[in-house]
Amino acid sequence: MAFWSAILLPLLICLLIFSGFLSKGDHGAHTSGVALWIEFSGLILAIMGSFILPMLIIFIAYSVNNIEHRADTWKSLFSLPISKLSVYAAKYFYALFLTFLCLALFVLFTLGFGNLLSVIKPSLRFSEYHIEGLLTRVYLKLFLSSLGILSIQFLLSLLFRDFLKPMGIGFICAITGDIIANNWKYSYLFPYSHPFLAIQALLNGKNAAIGPDGVPQITVDFFTKDIAVSLIVATIVFIAGYFIVLKKSVK
């Protein structure tokens, strides 16, 4: 289920924005290629990064663990001649892979639908600008910024059998993260704010300095405080989670 949601979600959102652009007709005909791309991918990013991404991660972390909770297979997994670290790490990296897959598909679909738009409606000058490199960097940053949430949610879902606890905690944290991201200078310390902080690079792209060729120079800075915090949190929670699994009794 997590696998399909990781594939369908980017498809669905990109398709929605695509049809939005398509129906608006020639509205954007006079906009430059750069601005068009930024508007197009920015819309997708805004929906994604602010709220959907944390929720998707919560869901992925939940699904990967719930499959064992539901079938009551933790006990049989842990009674196999496989080290507990392998079981734990394999689960974690699968969740990590799903998150990565989902974001990679977002890049692909954004580019794909953008180019499709320029074919269907040549008046939209998407072909003027190539956003591939920038978009990949933004999503890579988004991926890095989501690792903190993933680790926390993964551990919560591992520990709690029911849907409500990890989901509820994650939901409240995601909302809190959104609210404080812009209003609190220490929001970079809170993992659930990281995706929001990460995408601001592109969302603020319209105000970026204009380069010599008339194209805004948008740079994606990977070495920000929030990314550092995200990676540190991910590592610490991952290691702590392993020791919890090691100590935990399987009921």
Partner: peptide, 20 residues
């Protein structure tokens, strides 16, 4: 010797754990 021992045990605990 957890892994070494478990590699020689087959088990069925309570209701069977099966992916439905």
């Amino acid at each position: 010797n957890r892994v070494k021992i478990l590699s020689q045990i087959g088990s069925l605990i309570e209701q069977p754990a099966i992916y439905l």
